[in-house]
Every structure is written in C-alpha cells, then in structure tokens.
C-alpha cells in the first residue's frame, strides 16, 4: 500500500470501472482472460500498419488492386484481414480527380481489422458534424487543401459496411520497394484526412 500512496488518487470514473469489472467478473458475466486478450488484440495486434501493407501491395500489384476495388470483403478476408467492424468492406480509390473521405456521423464506425481502433478526433462531434457539411474546410484543419477541380466524396458509414481509402501513390516512389512504400502510408491517408507523401 505504501507504493499506491504515492500515486494520484483514483478518479471517479476509474473507481466506477474498477467496481464494474470486479462485479461482472465475480458474477461470471466476463472473465479476465478474455478482457486481457481483447485489449491485447486491439492495442498491439491490429492497427494502421495492416492497412499500410494492403495499400502498398495494391500500389505494386495491379491485379490485387483490381480485386480490392471489385470485392474488398473477400479480398481482405482471404488475406486474414476481417472480423468485427470489418466483415463488409469497400475500398475507394483516391486519384487526381477524386478525393475520398470517411466518417461515421451517427457514432464511430471504423474498419477495425485493417486500421485498428479510431483516434479520438474521428469519434469526436466536431469531426462528425463537419465531414458531411464542409469536408474541404475540415480537410484544411488537417493541413490538406484540395484543388477546386478535385471532386470530394464523403462516405458516411452508417450501416455495417466499412470503408478504406486507397490513397494516391505519390510521384517519386517508382523505385521504392513494397516495404518502403508501407512506411509512407499513414492512417490519415487511409481515412481520407491526409495523403501519402514523401515528406513526413
């Protein structure tokens, strides 16, 4: 107990969660091993590195890219990238003419198996409010100014389909390996709030 006396006191919410977990565990509603395994999966196993590998492969392999754009759910599941919040996938491609942006205005839907859990801003009310009404203004908050002639397509993932943006491959990457390409694919470029660039 001497050790804990040096720590900050637990907040109300920490105490509530601790009480709830102990209650549900003791009542046999959850078990600790399952909870630890879930946290480990989403904290350490899945994340934007998976999406980056998919994008880099699509950039290198036109046949894979065509399959991804045609039937993302099957193509991704074949690679082992599927599961809760990612069973039904659509991949949308950014080009010089089109920029895609994803949002969930009603809650926080996001393609967990390929991007992991969403960042706080994605789940926040300002992002959800603006993405559909003023996507160009929203993108400026992320430092991205799109030319007027680029068509902006916003995807509100309000049902069970989840969207992944296939970012535009930047110029000057023609000689890069698939592994090198993965490094320049950011989470934001796959949500549509950013672009893959060589300057990061």
């Amino acid at each position: 107990m001497t050790e804990s006396s040096h720590r900050a006191p637990l907040s109300d919410v920490q105490l509530r969660v601790r009480a709830l977990e102990s209650l549900l565990t003791e009542k046999g509603v959850v078990n600790r091993e399952t909870l630890d395994g879930i946290v480990d999966h989403y904290e350490n196993k899945v994340g934007p590195h998976i999406g980056a590998a998919i994008v880099a492969r699509a950039w290198m392999d036109p046949e894979f890219k065509a399959r991804l754009l045609e039937d993302a759910s099957t193509t991704l599941a074949d690679q082992g990238y599927t599961g809760i919040e990612g069973s039904h996938m659509v991949v949308v491609e950014n080009t010089d003419a089109v920029h895609n942006l994803t949002v969930c205005t009603l809650c926080s839907c996001y393609p967990w198996p390929v991007l992991g859990l969403p960042p706080n801003w994605y789940k926040s009310t300002p992002y959800r409010a603006k993405a559909v009404r003023d996507p160009r203004g929203l993108l400026r908050e992320f430092g991205l100014e799109l030319p007027e002639e680029t068509a902006v397509r916003v995807w509100d993932s309000n049902a069970e389909i989840r969207y992944l943006v296939l970012p535009k491959r930047p110029e000057g990457t023609e000689n890069m390996s698939e592994a090198e390409l993965q490094e320049i694919v950011t989470r934001d470029s796959m949500v549509g709030t950013g672009q893959a660039t060589l300057e990061q």
Binding site: T125, R133, E141
Partner: peptide, 11 residues
C-alpha cells in the same frame, strides 16, 4: 450531428 455548425475545432 452530421451537418451541425459551431461544434468547435477538431482536436
């Protein structure tokens, strides 16, 4: 909340 104004900046 989609389309509402004055919700503040994205943090």
């Amino acid at each position: 909340i989609g389309g509402m104004d004055n919700i503040g900046p994205v943090n």
